[in-house]
């Protein structure tokens, strides 16, 4: 059975698109037929991060409004065999994203893919609801700071009440916590919440932290999902997240502050 995974956060700029691309590429690397769908109508970004912005002809809204077929809109990744992208429209209005249309397109995708990763726009309005409404699972992307945690908490509440599964009283959406842009050194000096604090507040299963990393910027500038570079810290952290999502046990990494020697402590003041 295919699974629809919503990547959502409430707050903007916390790393949803980065996570969607990395997670989808990670699943594809693990051999699953995966598509990543951009729901951020008007602010599409995923195509840039995936490095396929010059190959977009039809988009999600064209498919919803029967102006093009799914086959025409799906873009096959050039690097990973199992990976496809369904881009968003940059020019249409969010209101064109109807729930009926989304349901039909996801239904067609479910027949062709094992995992359908939905990159949600920020906020709790129409676009975000459309991205989460038909989800089976949700990755709640959170930065270790108070406002992001508060917004994620709001989203967790909505996943339990404003989704198809909630409204039809089916098995609830499975929520998973991914903490991104984590910096253990800043946690240590109290500038950031710790992963334990965030977990305690949101109280949903924890898939891991992704460290604050230069590799993310480099990858997105060159249009490569960061998991394609498994050598990098962020890339390997995301591969761990994928593995834990698939039910495997992995020791948590990137959560310890770098041990500082006596002299470095002395000289850093």
């Amino acid at each position: 059975m295919a699974r629809v995974i919503a990547v959502t956060s409430g707050k903007g700029g916390v790393g949803k698109t980065t996570t969607s691309a990395a997670f989808a590429a990670g699943l594809a690397k693990r051999g699953f037929k995966t598509v990543v769908v951009d729901f951020d109508v008007g602010l599409r970004n995923l195509d840039l991060i995936m490095g396929c912005e010059r190959r977009v002809v039809y988009d999600l809204l064209n498919v919803i409004h029967n102006e093009g077929s799914l086959n025409q809109a799906l873009i096959k990744d050039k690097r990973l065999e199992n990976l496809y992208i369904l881009p968003a429209s940059q020019t249409r209005d969010k209101d064109a994203l109807t729930l009926e249309g989304v349901e039909r397109v996801l239904g067609e995708l479910r027949e062709r893919f094992e995992y359908i990763v939905c990159d949600s726009p920020a906020g709790i309005e129409k676009g975000a609801i459309a991205a989460m409404y038909y989800a089976d699972d949700a990755l709640v992307v959170t930065n270790p700071e108070v406002s992001s945690v508060r917004d994620s908490d709001r989203i967790v509440g909505m996943l339990g009440s404003k989704t198809y599964r909630a409204e039809k009283e089916l098995e609830p959406v499975k929520e998973y916590l991914v903490i991104t842009r984590y910096d253990p050194n800043r946690v240590e000096i109290g500038e950031m919440l710790s992963a334990a604090d965030v977990q305690e507040i949101l109280s949903i299963p924890f898939l891991g932290v992704v460290p604050e990393s230069q590799a993310v910027l480099e990858a997105s500038n060159s249009g490569i999902p960061v998991t394609m570079d498994e050598e990098s810290d962020a890339g390997s952290a995301y591969m761990d997240v994928v593995a834990r999502y698939l039910g495997e046990e992995r020791p948590h990494r990137f959560m310890q502050a770098a041990k500082k020697g006596f002299f470095s402590r002395l000289f850093r003041g």
Partner: peptide, 8 residues
């Protein structure tokens, strides 16, 4: 029996 989240 479950956490009451923001907005609820």
């Amino acid at each position: 029996s479950k956490t009451v989240h923001s907005g609820q």
